[in-house]
Design a protein around this nucleic acid. Structure first.
Length: 269
DNA sequence: AAAGGTTGCAACCGCTGGTCT
DNA sequence: CAGACCAGCGGTTGCAACCTT
């Protein structure tokens, strides 16, 4: 076993999946289910690792996935939930049946973020200042600079003085945020909410959605209360404080998590 | 028409936290 | 209690398609 839990590879394939591989994986899981992802590729005769199989299944092959463009209603849901939850893509995906966290994340980065930016002229000018400054912290990057910068401003998660910053270092970000806060536009969550979205009732994101079932309503009561009460002091709290959140498994949302099995009648359960 | 730049999306990487032994 | 294993998550990357000059 490697550190990450993968078995030593016998020449594992990477990259795009072929239709043959898709077919193998799909028919294997439809007939046998998946008890343990690490054994799936072995039993299914695939030269992939379990992680890759899981991702392919969740994001592309599993039944019930919606393909195609997002509806306006879905867009609004994403925008509103993102305002409340930040980059919690899997959490947002729970409110959009048939959509995967990866899909939502990509959609945000490629489209919604820009749309959101356009609707925030104030923030946009702040970002212009940052990107135009010769000593800008954010003077490099291969993607669109403005939207990249927006990521920094919104998420408070990345610090370009350390361009190698990776998710692995996020655990240290509490300290980093404190130490680097002088370099960042100080935008408190309550200000951000009230100034940028004065007309949005964030509770509606939860209560208006027809997709939310009763169980999820119950589970999210605490979360909704926190949001309604604006019970955060800053974006940092939103991004970094997860202590109030319920463990994901309590949502029992098998579609989003990919955890679903097949009973003897071939029904998805 | 060609070259360079940008975008969209699938897939990978590495970390975290839960569970099991 | 500690360590190993594993699934899940979010950030990042690679690359094909598309767009602009």
């Amino acid at each position: 076993m490697t550190k990450s839990g993968e078995r030593p590879k016998q020449r594992q394939r990477k990259g795009l999946w072929s239709p043959e591989e898709d077919q193998k994986l799909k028919s294997f899981i439809l007939s046998r289910g998946h008890a343990c992802w690490t054994t799936v590729p072995i039993l299914a005769g695939l030269q992939r690792n379990g992680k890759s199989c899981r991702l392919r299944w969740i994001n592309y092959l599993r039944p019930g996935l919606k393909r195609g463009s997002f509806s306006e209603e879905e867009e609004e849901t994403i925008l509103t939930l993102h305002s409340s939850l930040g980059n919690k893509w899997s959490r947002i995906a729970k409110y959009l049946p048939g959509r995967t966290d990866n899909e939502i994340k990509n959609y945000w980065h490629s489209y919604l973020k820009k749309r959101w930016l356009k609707s925030q002229p104030q923030l946009k000018s702040q970002i212009s200042d940052l990107t135009e400054s010769p000593s800008s912290l954010l003077s490099c990057g291969k993607r669109n600079l403005e939207t990249e910068t927006l990521d920094h401003v919104i998420s408070f998660q990345k610090f370009s003085e350390n361009p190698t910053s990776s998710p692995s270092k996020e655990s240290n970000n509490n300290n980093m945020i404190m130490n680097n806060s002088n370099n960042l536009p100080k935008l408190f969550f309550s200000e951000w909410i009230s100034s940028s979205n004065p007309h949005i009732d964030y509770s509606s994101a939860f209560t208006d959605s027809k997709h939310i079932n009763e169980t999820q309503d119950q589970i999210n009561e605490e979360e909704v209360m926190m949001i309604n009460n604006n019970n955060y002091s800053s974006l940092e709290d939103v991004m970094l404080r997860t202590d109030f959140l319920q463990p994901d498994h309590e949502y029992a949302n098998y579609y989003s998590s990919g955890d679903f099995f097949i009973n003897s009648d071939q029904n998805y359960v």
